[in-house]
Amino acid sequence: MEQKVGSFEVKKGLAQMLKGGVIMDVVNAEHAKIAEDAGACAVMALERVPADIRADGGVARMSDPEIILKIMDTVSIPVMAKCRIGHFVEAQILEAIGVDYIDESEVLTPADEAHHIYKHDFKVPFVCGCRNLGEALRRIGEGAAMIRTKGEAGTGDVVEAVRHARTVLGEIRRLQNMPEEEVMAFSKEIGAPYEVVLETRRLGRMPVVNFAAGGIATPADAALMMQLGVDGVFVGSGIFKSGDPARRASAIVKATTHFQDAKILAEVSRNLGGAMVGRQISALTEEEKLATRGW
């Protein structure tokens, strides 16, 4: 009876256990506890939430392992952490301290402008962002065990999250409905590995779990993404940049479970205090957009 660790089945499996849940950005142990108590299914350990990364400017890197370890000691739920795109040594460090998932994230400043990390080499699973199906399937080809649509982090504006989810889900519908002989050209057009394209066509969905991220700030935003057809949501700045984080966090968790029940959505949306102020996507310059990072 040989035990096999770090298989793709086991990496993908943890993401399956996160489905229907909310993954929350936290910057310290106190936030992590609030997130766990509110019903988060995992937390993302960070030094600064994306709204602050935006405001501060400069180079954004992997967090100090000390902060991540403190958060790991505080909560019993899975702890994720971010490394820069292509920075496989940051990823090795995160694996060495035992994080449960690595987010190779466009929110941090990219370390490589052509290549992402070869993720099959790691025992720890990776989640990666995408704006369209081609980007998602390239990441899966490199070994990502979970995908999130990027949206536009740190804005509190859900419009990009909707655009990216609709794009991905629409491309999958198109792929399913085309005749067999067009699949190779489609694969070429979107720049994705043919085998993964075929598997997506057969399954009628991506072969890994797909969450939404980037701009979700209210229970209604979370339910909107769920109704569009994603498996769960990441909420970054939306919780701890709001007036009453504990209350809002709990409301977003409930809205993600009961995403089809408008009466419950109305109930949990009441008296949440101020949402994060946010920034409209249309007011961002091209350089300010994080979603364009990733190749």
Binding site: M1, K4, G6, S7, V10, S76, V99, V124
Partner: peptide, 16 residues
């Protein structure tokens, strides 16, 4: 006992 085998890097498959 929760998380009895450790963290995600210790997750595994086996025939039983």
């Amino acid at each position: 006992a929760r998380n009895a085998f450790g963290r995600q890097v210790d997750s595994f498959e086996v025939d039983l």
